[in-house]
């Protein structure tokens, strides 16, 4: 019988889910608190009862910046912090809109796509 700490760690599990096309976050069985980024325990309380659940993909832009980059190096791109509907915040990129038009408070929805050769959680306007 395998225990809570056996096998691949939360980061490896998260990346495997992502490779399989799933955006998974963690939830504490006892408290119902959602956790991202993936951890071995609930931050602060320390409970070791985290299970994987699929994220709704719904989020709100908490903060946003347009990183200015020369066109020959790929051009400007957005970096945002997204508050997930479940509670946790994550860094991501909002796409499908000009990078300097991403506004704080904007509703966004997650999708999985390739970013620099690896699967990534991206967001687009909802």
């Amino acid at each position: 019988m395998s225990g809570y700490f056996d096998g691949p760690g939360p980061e490896a599990e998260f990346r495997q889910f992502l490779a399989d096309g799933k955006f998974m976050i963690q939830r504490s069985k006892g408290s119902g608190i959602h956790v991202f980024h993936p951890r071995v325990m609930v931050p602060c309380s320390g409970e070791t009862d985290l299970e994987w659940v699929e994220a709704s993909g719904e989020g709100t832009v908490y903060a946003a910046t347009c990183t200015r980059r020369r066109p020959e190096k790929g051009g400007d791109y957005n970096v945002s912090l997204i508050d997930l509907a479940e509670g946790p915040r994550m860094m991501a990129r909002v796409v499908g809109i000009e990078p300097d038009q991403v506004m704080v408070g904007m509703k966004v929805r997650a999708r999985i796509d390739d970013l620099n050769g690896a699967p990534a959680i991206l967001f687009e306007p909802a």
Binding site: A63, T65, T67, V79, L81, N116
Partner: peptide, 14 residues
Amino acid sequence: QYEPRNPITAYALA
């Protein structure tokens, strides 16, 4: 993976 150009990205977000 999202290529934050830290530290400036973080301070721009703030």
